[in-house]
Design a protein around this nucleic acid. Sequence first.
DNA 1: GCATTAAACGGAGGTGCCTCCGGAACCTAG
DNA 2: CTAGGTTCCGGAGGCACCTCCGTTTAATGC
Lengths: 180, 180
Amino acid sequence: MRADARRNRERLLEVARVACTSGRPLVLEDVARAAGVGIGTLYRHFPTREALVEAVFGAERAELCARAEQLLAGHEPVVALRAWMDCYADFVATKRGMAETLKVIITGDDGATARAREGLHAAVGGLLAAGVRTGELRAGVLPEDLVAALVGVLLATDDPEQVGRLFDLLVAGLRAPAAG
Amino acid sequence: MRADARRNRERLLEVARVACTSGRPLVLEDVARAAGVGIGTLYRHFPTREALVEAVFGAERAELCARAEQLLAGHEPVVALRAWMDCYADFVATKRGMAETLKVIITGDDGATARAREGLHAAVGGLLAAGVRTGELRAGVLPEDLVAALVGVLLATDDPEQVGRLFDLLVAGLRAPAAG
DNA sequence: GCATTAAACGGAGGTGCCTCCGGAACCTAG
DNA sequence: CTAGGTTCCGGAGGCACCTCCGTTTAATGC
């Protein structure tokens, strides 16, 4: 990778990180200008908006996934699951105005987003499996379904209290024995 | 209301209905052109994209809400609820590419969308209340929470099977007795 | 009919997204 | 140090969104 390319990439990430957490909508042309590069350069390094966001938050997302195991180590599975769900909500809450982007990251099917999705599925899968082992959660729920449900809740509402109630509702559904 | 205004409004609605159900993304300038009016005229009649979509599907949405009572009349409350959820999914499924628009209709707070939201809340509220009366569903779940959850699921995924599984999960959560 | 006026029209133009490709910059080899 | 090839840069331009305001037109009163 050429030196100038690496330099530009770093600058873009730095500027984008600030822009993503500023609360204002992420305007890509502004990011490029603030980084001192042309818009074309931004798009070469990050072909889609999602690629940029994933690059900015990739580390944070990985940390979130790792959090699942830490929580499992210190709490009952269901408690750990519920706590992790709140961590997820916090993770998303700091990224106002990019709910749609996060959805694409979860549901999209290109290579860049696949990694993000797999990490989340693994984290959720671990939490679910632990609960199933202790008999608190019913078996057969797919991790990807729960991830989709979490994303859905966070897409549907910004209100933290409502998010909490809906997460409780989901956990209740996971506990219940399968009903005909 | 002036005659030409009414005529244009009708034309716009007619064209928009076709465009909304065509499967292709709804391009407002195309709607205006196809209706033989300027883009400014479209925006005067329907100040936002949501207003246009709500005007197009208002009747259909009202019918969906009415469906809740019909289902309650003929089925057990939980069965009715679950069936209605599928009706809702079908309603949304015919409107590809406007998930975000539907979200705004549900979560937005201007007058036009308030009506839509109230109707849905009433429908869901009726279904929930019936289930609570028979003791099948637990009390205390807010209709607006369930509506948000349904919207969330439909925003998060297009896959009908996954939607079905997630709706089942929600119903399971509604059945379960409150757990500490 | 005709003047008046309030309502409605329509499209030019500003914004942001994203693509495309001619030209500049970097690296390597000689 | 320079030539050559490869990589990378940058912004012009096309698309869709939405706003704004000068112009047109329907309705009303005479």
